[in-house]
Each structure stands twice: as structure tokens, then as C-alpha cells.
Nucleic acid binder design. Structure first.
Length: 262
DNA sequence: GCTCATGTTCCCCT
DNA sequence: CAGGGGAACATGAG
């Protein structure tokens, strides 16, 4: 589930249920998701502390508890959930118990996990080099970030060092809505291409962030990805798939490849 | 048994 | 150095 809109949803959940609340205790059913700490260390750092204002950068979620900040990355299958009963889910890996409920880091595949940072420097070392957040990125910054790259547009959009927050599904969605070929050279985009890409990207992000997920609705590519033969929601033409940067890309040849073939 | 999966990282080529 | 392909990570689902 987790690309920028999903993580923004987790941030809102954390803010709504966690901010201002005190940690009673921390339980770690699966210590393997803790990357630079252990259950004891995490418990010592959080117990008795109140959550301050959580923040998000790209697909990273930061939960500051006084001088310690918990960093979450959700990989491909992670989520942050709020539970008020004791019901345990087999994929619950870390439970932060507050007075009126628990925040749980739930993740099937454990491709990423949870880190603990004690200052901004440490947090930034853990998150690595990230470009500006995709949400609210200006047209100018988009052009500047994409202009210097020689790779294919879709690979560049998914590169977190260029822009932070876009994954496979969002990138396909944005490129399809903007009628751009994922294989276009990033630095050869024309100014009108960039205008359109920027407008579409911000609209897709705004609408997805509002919901906390990419709407699998009519008129969105996300709604047809899983169809038997997926068809373009705009023109009905069968979508074509290809591998870009190790992931499956879906595109509509008539809409996105101009008049060419490919 | 096989393939594929909303992410990232590392290794090896070109 | 910049990109691309492929594998690996852990765990399913179909």
C-alpha cells in the first residue's frame, strides 16, 4: 500500500491518536524489524514520553518522542494502524501502547522497518539522500530536478534522491494521466511536457493524499491494473506492460506513445 | 513447483 | 560517473 499518499494517511493517524499522548509501554512481537535498536532500547527511549508532531518526507514517517524519534518505512506491505482492542494480527511487529489504544507497525514482508534516531543528523543518515517531497513541489523545482537526469522518465520519477514519495503505481498513474511515455529521456522533456507533468502530478497527489490511498476508480489507471487484460480507461485500448527500473510499467500505446509504434 | 507483488540496495555491465 | 539489468531481502497470493 505505501507510497506518499498512504504514508501521509499514516501520519494523520499518528497525529490524530498519538500527538500529546504518553507511551505506557512498547511491545515488539518481531524484533527483526528493529534496525538500529532492540526492544529494550526502544522501550527505554519511548516509555513515559509524549508524542510530538509527526512529520513525513517522501515515504518516511517520523514520530518524535522528546529527544528520540522513531523512523518508519513501510516497504511494500507495511502499514500503521490504530487499535483499541487486544486483537493481535500476525503481521503486527511493533506495538506502541498509549493510554487509550495502540499504534501498531504492521508489515507482512518486512522489507523495511523501524529505526530510532536521537537528532536530525542521525535521522537524515538513516533516511539517506532524499529529494524534495513530491507533494507541493513547484514547477520550477520539478524542471530543475528532472532536467539533470539522463535516465528514462519513469525511473527518474521513482528515484527517491530526485523526488521523494513516488512509487511504481503513482508514477504509472501520473504518466498515463499526463499522456507521457515512461521511456522518454527525462532531460528531453519539453517545457509544455513539464507543465503538464507538474499539473497532473500535483492533482493526482492532492486527490490521493485526501483519501490516504490512490483511488482505484473509474478514470484512474490504478482502477484497471488488476483487470484480466487491463484496458485504458480513456480509450479502451489494451494496456501494454514493460519492465522499467525493475518494475512492471503499464501504459496505453495510443495515449502515451504519440503516433509512433514501440 | 512456479511467478508475481505499491520498495530499496548492492553488484556487475556498458 | 551515469544508467540499466538482475538478484537479494521476507512472505505470501494465485
Amino acid at each position: 500500500v505505501p507510497e506518499l499518499p498512504d504514508v501521509e494517511g499514516f501520519r494523520r493517524l499518528l497525529e490524530k491518536h498519538g500527538t500529546g499522548h504518553r507511551v505506557q509501554r512498547v511491545e515488539v512481537p518481531d524484533p527483526a524489524v528493529l534496525h538500529n535498536t532492540n526492544p529494550q532500547g526502544l522501550g527505554r527511549s519511548l516509555r513515559g514520553r509524549r508524542l510530538d508532531e509527526p512529520s513525513r518526507h517522501g515515504k518516511w514517517l517520523r514520530a518524535p518522542f522528546g529527544t528520540s524519534t522513531v523512523l518508519f518505512h513501510f516497504g511494500m506491505t507495511g502499514a500503521l494502524v490504530w487499535v483499541t482492542n487486544e486483537e493481535f494480527h500476525p503481521h503486527d511487529r511493533v506495538c506502541i501502547v498509549l493510554d487509550d489504544g495502540e499504534l501498531r507497525y504492521r508489515d507482512q514482508r518486512k522489507l523495511k522497518g523501524v529505526w530510532l534516531a536521537h537528532d536530525d543528523r542521525e535521522a537524515s543518515d538513516i533516511m539517506g539522500s532524499l529529494g524534495p517531497d513530491a507533494l507541493g513541489l513547484s514547477r520550477q523545482d520539478l524542471g530543475d530536478r528532472l532536467g539533470g537526469r539522463r535516465g528514462r522518465l519513469k525511473a527518474v520519477l521513482m528515484d527517491q534522491e530526485v523526488i521523494a514519495g513516488l512509487g511504481n503505481i503513482l508514477s504509472d498513474e501520473i504518466l498515463w494521466q499526463a499522456r507521457l511515455d515512461p521511456s522518454t529521456s527525462s532531460r528531453e522533456l519539453t517545457s509544455p511536457d513539464l507543465d503538464r507533468l507538474h499539473r497532473v502530478m500535483q492533482r493526482v497527489l492532492r486527490e490521493s493524499v485526501k483519501l490516504g490511498f490512490i483511488p482505484p476508480e473509474p478514470g484512474w489507471l490504478a482502477g484497471v491494473r488488476d483487470a484480466d487484460p487491463p484496458r485504458c480507461p480513456r480509450c479502451g485500448y489494451p494496456l501494454r506492460s514493460q519492465r522499467i527500473a525493475g518494475r512492471t510499467s503499464w501504459l496505453c500505446p495510443p495515449c502515451q506513445l504519440g503516433s509512433g509504434d514501440r
